[in-house]
Amino acid sequence: MQQSVSAHVSDHDHGHVDQDSLKILGFWIFLVTDCLLFGTLFATYAVLHTHTNGGFTGKEFDIPGFVIETFVLLVSSFTSGLAVLEMHKGNKKGLISWLIITLLLGATFVGLEIHEFVSMAAEGATISTSAFLTSFFTLVGTHGAHVTFGIFWMIGLIVQLAKKGITSDTKRKISIISLYWHFLDAVWIFIFTVVYLMGVM
């Protein structure tokens, strides 16, 4: 036992915990809670998706619309991955360029989603039409709000990168936002499947 204790001691840098790994772990745990948040919304959607109140049903989703949205978001996840690769190479310019492309794609996604919502509302399919639509707009809208938040966050980080360059702090921040971005992508895969594909099927 004594031995294992001393081995453990040497791991510590004089009791100063590694702040970067601490913050990344915390963010992973936050993502778990965010996952549960979406899980609750999915469960609600599952319960209410047949409660269409005689109005708009899942069959009427705009297929080309949600396919393009999915494509745009998946590509943005790929480009955010490229950004992180550039960061590990130490290429600040490449990193910032890929981040800008990522956030432009993100903004396109949000724009497409707003367009989808607005045209649905124009057809009379609003949040107060039926329980199905309430849960639809809430689930998909919560995801969209997350992406929107991520866009502003990313803008903030690009400014910091431009000012400070790639340091251990900005590296950590970029790693965290890329986790966040991939997470939103994963959530979207479920929305794509559970809401849209199973809706039009």
């Binding site: 209410l48 409660h51 269409t52 109140n53 107060s128 309430t134 809430t138 919560t142």
Partner: peptide, 21 residues
């Protein structure tokens, strides 16, 4: 959030009408 949507934005998560539960 859901109760807020029901109360402030006319949602139907938990109402007696329009399929809420």
């Amino acid at each position: 959030i859901m109760l807020t949507i029901d109360r402030l934005f006319g949602g139907h998560f938990f109402t007696m009408t329009a399929g809420g539960n």
